[in-house]
Design a protein around this nucleic acid. Sequence first.
DNA 1: TACAAATCCTACTAAAATACTATAATATCC
DNA 2: GGATATTATAGTATTTTAGTAGGATTTGTA
Lengths: 144, 144
Amino acid sequence: MRISTKGRYALRLMVDLARNSGAGPVSLKDIARRQDISDKYLEQIISVLNRAGYVRSLRGAQGGYFLQRPPEEYTVGMILRLTEGSLAPAPCVDEATAPCGRQEGCAAAVLRKKISDAVSSVVDQVTLQDLMTWQNGIDSECVI
Amino acid sequence: MRISTKGRYALRLMVDLARNSGAGPVSLKDIARRQDISDKYLEQIISVLNRAGYVRSLRGAQGGYFLQRPPEEYTVGMILRLTEGSLAPAPCVDEATAPCGRQEGCAAAVLRKKISDAVSSVVDQVTLQDLMTWQNGIDSECVI
DNA sequence: TACAAATCCTACTAAAATACTATAATATCC
DNA sequence: GGATATTATAGTATTTTAGTAGGATTTGTA
């Protein structure tokens, strides 16, 4: 029941991008240094965000990344689902073709759905902007 | 963000125990056969539940296990926390000594706590009895 | 009392997921 | 043309998960 580093790093990455936007694209190397995360690992993570259109990239010298949209338009759920895969507590919650074959009236399904909905209700509500606001006053490198 | 088989098997095991209680202790072998789970693996799982006092055991021939308390006194949260470890979405949510050292006002901490609370609000509310009720009408081997 | 059926206990292992690391190609600004 | 970026692909070490295996111990029953 853990969010892996991949999802957490993605959040930190996006918050970092949001905080440091304005003065041109932000290079991954800078983000990696500020967040103290391997830049090669971040590369893989941001490429997912890039392909999904969450960030835009500029190649070459003075290149880097920037957010495609304002921070309040990204929810934590969007980012985590992309990087973590599903947020469901077990296979078969959100899959149409449940392995057990009987989604209807199944105790397991009811329980899973409740957990899944509870998590979603949080992560789909909290935006990047919220994370930034909560973090204000604290120094920027606070770990998510 | 998954519940592992360990936690899920523990739930199935407990529901099975609850359903088959009344006629003396229930042997693990029977549970394993009904639930189609390796009995050796179940042994490890039930030993945790046993040490925690959630079930009682009787050794020797005609021995087995039975629930220590009525099904409505076990929550899903109790069982999952025991077998899965913490249900927190990341280290440092429920630990007093957060690795980042600054629990207060940290965006990460706020987010994690929200997720953790959301999950808890579900799993601490649902009891074994609920699972049994939801499962009524369905054949018993429905997989959690 | 011997035997069978059960729990208990410890250790081992295969496979998958996680968390990176490495290398090289490509693009762009100066 | 060179420094600085992103992009793409492949490889690897570590950890976690999900079991297996073997045997010791206990206890009811014949």
